[in-house]
Amino acid sequence: MTELLTNSGLQLVLLLLVAPLLSGMIKTLKARLQTRRGPGVLQSYRDIFKLLRKGMVIPETASWIFTVTPYVVFGTATLVGLMIPMTTTHAPFSLFGGVLAVVYLLALGRFFLALGGLDTGSSFGGLGSSREMTISAIAEPAMMLAIFTVALGANSTNLSEMAKVAVGQSWRFLAPSQMLAFAALFIVLIAETGRIPVDNPATHLELTMIHEAMVLEYSGPYLALIEWGASIKQLVLMTLLVNTFFPFGLSSNWTAQTVGVGLVFYLAKLLMLACMIVLVETTNAKLRLFRVPELLMVAFILGALALISTFLF
């Protein structure tokens, strides 16, 4: 019980702190790659802090759904974070929800976010909600297929179990099925976190935005919660990717030392994944909305191939 509490406490702190850092890092890296100076790595912390100290404007037409949404988004993202192994294979809440719960809890957050977007009656909100739900819907099967490939290898949907199995066979990621699954999940990650070429997190142009359009009416602390939640979600998904496919540094026993070592490895892996994302973002242009399904279809095919190749290899 105490281990559970300390573990969750630690992981919670890690989540809350690392998530904005990661966002900031991606922004900085991207700017550097585009030979801009860009904001500092800590910019996301500053944003959140600033927003928390702002007054709020609630749209007149909004109902309590608008108010509840930020908590749900934040709550689900954080809760999901507790179910994912970060520094060791022991995720504190692993027993209470596996990868399916992760996917569906994130969906719960998205559900409310979309409602929040529609609640104000503004066309932007509706536009964003519509696009968000559409893209996530078509991303879902690809994601599930990729996850299933891993889960079937581990014979479990429990993330800690999956990580443990992965630790047991470190070079498994070289298997074609794993590679394909990774590629599929990577595409899904791009879509789910609203990155180029699916969405542009840096724009407020009505034709292109998805996530930003939904949260257009939010301000102050609510916006802070939502942004924070979004960055936690991004962290969670990236963690899922790095720790299930590249379990280096994960230890299956939980001591201060293993946590420390794990943390270092973990941050390094995240950084590499962030670099990949940045690379994709800078080398690609944003796709037209109706091109996105094609991209996700590719992901789905990759997932299916991954599944079939578990047979072959």
Partner: peptide, 23 residues
Amino acid sequence: PLAGSMLALTGALAAACFVKAFA
């Protein structure tokens, strides 16, 4: 597993649909 992924698609579309219905 393919059926599972279709179930995922179903779930996500259902969510989209009920966002619409409720909102």
